[in-house]
Simulated assay, not measured.
Amino acid sequence: MISRLFWAMAAAFLGFSDAGAQSAREVAAIKQVFAKVQPKSFAANREYCGYIGWSRDGTLAVSRMKRGRTDQCRPPRARHLHIIASWHTHAAYDPEALSEVPSVTDILADADEGIDGYLATPGGRLWYIDTTDMEVTQLCGLGCLPRDPAFLQGSEGPILQSYSYRDLLRRENEITAQN
């Protein structure tokens, strides 16, 4: 409780916000993280994850990363950060997986933690998961981040610029019903 109060006061004093709007600085930092992590994620066919937040000295920082499983990853604790968002990859390309758009599970996991999130896909897309509005937005498209060499463009059909939570549910149900 004291820790949350400390971080909230420090963030307000230093002018930081975690109210759902990502800054250009935050996006640039997360792109650097994904540029390094995506190749590892493809090679191992595992999700990698962590957090991004403000350190005690007021710098934007990322937590230690963790290697997860093929379809999930739980970030390591990051008590040294005022966490503003999670980040994770979607492992290597798998034609049987829905990996080019954040999943319902992705948005719910971040919402449960009370934070937003970033996702990198095998096609090299960068998504922002906004849990205040319960929607996901593609910050940059196909190939803006490292791309899995095995990735087949179009295998999941058209990919929109953004989806609401309901859109994600509908999309997952429609694609599952087709298979």
Rank of each mutant, 00 (worst) to 15 (best):
W7T: 08
A11W: 03
L14D: 07
L14A: 07
G15R: 02
S17V: 06
D18G: 15
D18F: 13
A19M: 03
A24Y: 02
R25A: 15
A29P: 04
K31M: 12
V33W: 04
V37D: 01
P39C: 12
K40D: 13
S41H: 01
A43E: 03
A44S: 13
N45E: 11
N45H: 15
R46S: 12
E47V: 09
E47N: 05
C49R: 09
C49T: 10
I52G: 01
G53V: 04
W54L: 15
R56P: 00
D57Y: 01
T59K: 15
T59W: 05
T59G: 12
L60K: 08
L60M: 14
S63E: 05
K66M: 10
R67N: 02
R67E: 14
G68R: 03
G68C: 06
G68M: 05
R69Y: 12
R69I: 10
T70W: 00
Q72C: 09
C73E: 10
P75H: 07
A78H: 05
A78T: 02
I84F: 01
W87Y: 15
W87P: 01
T89D: 04
H90Y: 04
A91P: 10
A91W: 08
Y93K: 02
P95D: 06
P95A: 07
L98W: 12
S99D: 15
E100L: 13
P102I: 13
P102F: 12
D106W: 06
L108Y: 11
A109K: 04
A109P: 04
E113G: 12
I115H: 10
D116S: 09
G117A: 08
Y118F: 13
Y118T: 03
L119K: 00
A120G: 13
A120V: 06
P122E: 06
G124C: 09
R125D: 05
L126V: 04
I129F: 02
T132M: 05
D133S: 12
M134F: 14
M134W: 10
E135N: 11
G143S: 13
G143N: 13
C144H: 10
D148R: 02
D148I: 05
P149L: 08
A150W: 00
F151Y: 15
L152D: 08
L152Y: 03
L152C: 05
Q153D: 10
E156R: 05
E156F: 05
P158K: 15
I159T: 06
L160H: 08
S164W: 11
S164Q: 11
D167Q: 05
L169H: 07
R170Q: 13
E172Q: 10
N173V: 00
N173P: 01
T176P: 00
A177N: 10
N179Y: 09
N179P: 04
